[in-house]
Write a protein that binds this DNA or RNA. Structure first.
Lengths: 228, 228
DNA sequence: ATTATAGTGTGCGATTTATCACATTTTTGT
DNA sequence: ACAAAAATGTGATAAATCGCACACTATAAT
């Protein structure tokens, strides 16, 4: 867990901060509140008013939607050094999604109005935020489109590649998402995820031990993601 | 078809233009090239270098991805007064998607470098572009998530609502997309789309006459989109 | 240690969709 | 106007998934 420090000396700040002047940084600092969440805690609920932009200093956050009759949908897993709620910053006053930490997390709440004014007043800062938003959206597009398949094995394969490449940035990772949550990421069910994972394990494509997963045969997994 | 005019007197320009100074507008104008496409023409192919941002003055454009072995995927239908390729503006040099006009279209090619400089130099302009990008991304998120279902009738219902609300902005519209293309929007097949549309028609939920579709029973369609 | 609770593995039947085949209609090009 | 090509409608079949039931395991609480 990182200690409380100022924006100007923050070692895990966003690269957009580098475009801010000293005065602008001081201004942001004055409207930022740092805090921590423990695994499982809810940071924000969908359709509640949003007054802050959240910056994730460390930990992983699940972005999802709850429905009345059907099961939840997981939109994405946000990783450290990314903003939460950037998509709604300039458009929505109510939160589009719910956010829950899947690990302990260290976050900063930055006042939305202040952040907005910094954007309008500093084109270079705005450009950096635009880059962040673009990257995030491209990543999500990629994920959503990769799920545009009919077979569950292919969808699970795509999901594993997403987790490995975009979230954990490693071929080997501790999975702190349940089978049900994985199913909610790919419009599938707990059981189908189990069956696909077991199949990949038995085929030697991945190794599963408790919650640890490591990808053994990238090539065959890619093949499943493409065709299956 | 709209006549060739300058950015400053354009009646169908983006609202972001209003934040530009006279000099900035003149600069943009000098690096903008207006042209037209006829139905079916390709504006840009995926993975080709991108030097311009495209602004759609009139007409409708299909954004899609081609795959080697499987059928195309349609990402979205871009409607008039929206930018094409905004997502890749600040990040990619190669086009993420292919673009093909589904009607005659009137477009402007704006030099990417010029546009980028305008963003960095004018925070208010940058903010407007950020708003445009956010809105587009939210719309796409919504669509992608609405397709996160397992049943084809529900997916077709969601698709009809998307077309009606986000694209045509009417309950009644001429559909110039083939059954196959509709299938490519929802990870389904030509035949399944046909069957769903016919069912909705027979149930009186929609009316279909040639390529004209009108939604008769919004409520039941919504019900299908939610549950089915 | 024991109990309660949440999560996981697995078989089976019902349901749904993809796929194929082919008739029919519509559009395109000459 | 006509032929060719593309798109659409529809049935039958095969393949795949969902959803349920239940056993089992891991985790948390007392």
């Amino acid at each position: 867990m990182n200690e409380t420090i100022s924006c100007s000396t923050c070692l895990v700040g966003s690269c957009a901060l580098e475009t801010l002047t000293r005065n602008e940084l001081v201004n942001m600092e004055a409207h930022t509140y740092q805090t921590t969440f423990r695994r499982g805690e809810v940071l924000r609920k969908q359709e509640t008013p949003v007054e802050s932009l959240i910056y994730l200093r460390s930990g992983y956050i699940k972005e999802f939607i709850s429905h009345e009759n059907t099961s939840d949908q997981v939109v994405q897993i946000v990783k450290p050094r990314f903003y939460i709620g950037l998509l709604g910053l300039c458009t929505n006053s109510a939160s589009l999604y719910s956010y829950q930490s899947v690990t302990d997390a260290d976050v900063c709440f930055i006042d939305k109005g202040t952040f907005s004014k910094l954007i309008a007043g500093n084109g270079n800062f705005a450009r950096e935020i635009l880059v962040s938003l673009s990257r995030e959206s491209i990543k999500n597009h990629k994920r959503f489109l990769s799920l545009n398949k009919t077979q569950s094995f292919g969808k699970v394969a795509s999901l594993l590649m997403y987790l490995s490449e975009e979230v954990y940035e490693s071929n080997s990772f501790e999975l702190w998402l349940s089978r049900a949550e994985l199913g909610q990421m790919i419009a599938s069910t707990r059981e189908s995820v189990t069956r696909a994972l077991r199949y990949f394990h038995n085929e030697g494509i991945i190794r599963m031990l408790k919650n640890h997963i490591s990808i053994q045969n990238q090539e065959r997994l890619t093949e499943f993601a493409k065709r299956g």
